[in-house]
């Protein structure tokens, strides 16, 4: 089988398009590269959506944690503590079990004038359930980063804002938020890289792969199990992830340049990328 044929068959296998059966024997290098690359679609999907939604929640959580009122601050603190203090692996299991325990048929909601049934089955599927976990998890980590940045905004900046008569939302929008983002950006870049790496945990925790549609690591370990040779699929996976990491660094670097554009050259913050391990 030629490599173009393999690409046609397996390039979109992870989302259910193409050949139904996975290759079973005589694995070629091309098959491994294509199928693992196909799995990467899921890693990108989880990473992008969790990061996008997570950003909004993270900013809210950071603001809540910095709030003087205890009834706002305490929930935010607990949210951050629980999600940062426990392994993502356990969080996946826990959420999966919770979603499984929800009634199979759905929950009947009586609104008084009409009765609606909320479907809950889709929550046990990885595309939704795991996304929720990753979303909450990254919100907690990024929330802590943003909270730290919020606390290290130079006092002079805020005083200057006061002197110009900025108040309330206007002050937040024009001074607090951009400065916070600029200070937090290098750390947030690392968090984004973490998150993409963490997406590989999805199919290794509670969430089962349905019809063998899995992420890059799922296929890599499939090949490693079948060929009993870890020295081919895992380096391929590593190569893909290095490319993904470089892409993240490039995009976040552009944003970083934009956030720092008003500063003199020597005061601009450089991105220091130090990806870390599992959470």
């Amino acid at each position: 089988m030629s490599c173009t044929q393999t690409i046609e068959d397996y390039a979109l296998r992870s989302i259910g398009i193409g050949e139904r059966l996975l290759p079973r024997s005589d694995f070629t290098l091309c098959e491994q590269v294509v199928l693992i690359g196909s799995g990467l679609i899921w890693n990108v999907y989880f990473g992008l959506l969790a990061l996008g939604f997570g950003f909004i929640l993270a900013v809210s959580v950071a603001m809540a944690k910095a709030a003087p009122a205890a009834w706002v601050r305490k929930p935010a603190e607990w949210f951050i503590f629980v999600f940062r203090g426990s392994p993502l692996f356990i969080q996946f299991f826990l959420f999966y079990e919770t979603f499984v325990l929800l009634p199979k048929i759905g929950i009947d909601l009586n609104l008084g004038f009409a009765e609606i049934t909320i479907e809950t089955r889709w929550l046990t599927r990885a595309w939704a359930g795991a996304l929720i976990v990753l979303f909450l998890n990254t919100s907690a980590y990024a929330g802590e980063i943003f909270h730290g940045a919020l606390r290290s905004i130079p006092r002079g900046d805020m005083e200057a804002g006061d002197a110009y008569g900025f108040t309330g939302w206007h002050k937040f929008r024009k001074i607090t938020f951009p400065t916070m983002l600029r200070l937090a950006w290098p750390a947030y870049t690392n968090e984004a890289i973490f998150l993409f790496h963490a997406t590989t945990l999805v199919y290794f925790s509670g969430f089962p792969a349905w019809q063998q549609k899995g992420d890059a690591l799922y296929y890599a370990s499939y090949f490693a199990d079948k060929t009993f040779n870890p020295f081919v699929p895992y380096p391929i996976l590593a190569g893909y992830f290095i490319l993904l990491t470089l892409a993240v660094i490039l995009i976040f670097g552009l944003v970083n340049a934009r956030l720092n554009r008003h500063l003199p050259q020597d005061r601009r913050q450089k991105l220091r990328v130090r990806p870390q391990v599992i959470r």
């Binding site: 890289i193 993409f196 790496h197 963490a198 590989t200 945990l201 290794f204 690591l217 890599a220 370990s221 490693a224 009993f228 870890p230 020295f231 895992y234 996976l237 590593a238 992830f241 290095i242 990491t245 470089l246 990328v273 130090r274 990806p275 391990v277 599992i278």
Partner: peptide
């Protein structure tokens, strides 16, 4: 070498690689 690659991949890789 450990940077830029998900660590879970290392965990799965090293166990087989070391054993072999």
């Amino acid at each position: 070498i450990v940077r830029g690659v998900p660590d879970i991949a290392f965990f799965l890789f090293f166990v087989i690689a070391l054993d072999q």
